[in-house]
Design a protein around this nucleic acid. Sequence first.
DNA 1: TTAGATTTGTTAAAAATTTAACAGCTATTT
DNA 2: AAATAGCTGTTAAATTTTTAACAAATCTAA
Lengths: 205, 205
Amino acid sequence: MKRLPDKTVERLSQYRRTLNNQLAKGKTHIFSHEIANLLHITPVQVRRDIMLIGYSGTLRKGYDISEMIELIGTIIDTDQGVRIAVIGMGNLGKAFIHYMYEKRTKLKIVAAFDVNPDKIDKSYEDVYCYHLDKLEEIMIEKEISVAIIATPPEVASPLADRLKEAGIRGILNYTPRPLSPREGVYLEEHDMITSLEKVAYFVKN
Amino acid sequence: MKRLPDKTVERLSQYRRTLNNQLAKGKTHIFSHEIANLLHITPVQVRRDIMLIGYSGTLRKGYDISEMIELIGTIIDTDQGVRIAVIGMGNLGKAFIHYMYEKRTKLKIVAAFDVNPDKIDKSYEDVYCYHLDKLEEIMIEKEISVAIIATPPEVASPLADRLKEAGIRGILNYTPRPLSPREGVYLEEHDMITSLEKVAYFVKN
DNA sequence: TTAGATTTGTTAAAAATTTAACAGCTATTT
DNA sequence: AAATAGCTGTTAAATTTTTAACAAATCTAA
């Protein structure tokens, strides 16, 4: 399949979660407009995305929820799953771990890192926290390919260097300080304050 | 000024933060390509955004940092500032409060809400936590216009109803369950798992 | 069995966003 | 003072993303 548009990939993840919810409620089929309502996007967009991933629904019955979840999995998930580290065991790091806890996605947080002795060598919801000094070692041992940076902003950039050196493939930066892209490392930034300021701006008008 | 593109608004917020950093380092002027490098976008995009907000730099000296910060402020900030509530005092809620703590933006978190007695009637970094029952009362008293939802997903939707009823103007939903839009309420969604799955997808390829 | 109502799949059009191209200043160098 | 180099501001082109439009398929009901 040719490369999917970025925005479609983002939505696939949402579709799957929504579909799982519906499945849990006992539904077996769903219409494009139902998905659309749940995610407040348009039905056309849903159908188009579904077309792009090469799935087909049944006319007048809609899409088979299980099949679609399955298919999205083959697209979004890697076979072995992606193994993730959270760096920074503050509130945000913990929030991530809590979020992922007991969700059975192919994404798995397999380690946390911090420099605070109070946090090190303890588990938080099954995720063990190591001293940051052990980063490289554990990354190899646990085959970690993605890192979430949830540290104070000033350490983000040197950390990214270390991660790259140690062979990271993707970084999700939740720090307000943007990182410069590194060759061969997929970088996604998210800035909580920007989200807020955006809301604030549109509230004004 | 006519309505700015959404994406530009998002970037203005980032520009300002970056400019503040540079100002703190003693710089007084900055070129478009410098801003661009710091945020890893293109210089053209920076110049275009700056054009859209009606600012001009000096040729061969670049943009005056202070002036630009000032101007972005007049666009992004409201005069009185926006007063914000965090709902849900879990890790994520705390992360938000911590993030905003002592940042002198016009955005101010003025209250938190929860239902857990251990959290209620205490302050976390100067933000007082009320029982959720007092939501409407406090919202009016403190003139809150934006709410960040950081609760467990299942309560998000009824909560949004209450918020709307109480006159909220904007909602930032950090719950994985998407909310349906409500008339007159600006809604911004952010799903941490989607961010992660996006990274995971692009790491694969 | 014909008409009507739904709902999908897809192509085409529209809108939003990003990138390119380049003219026009201003400082600097020769 | 003429040539050069560096940057800005802006219009135009390209790309990406969303929305519209509609034919085709399937069920329902008269």
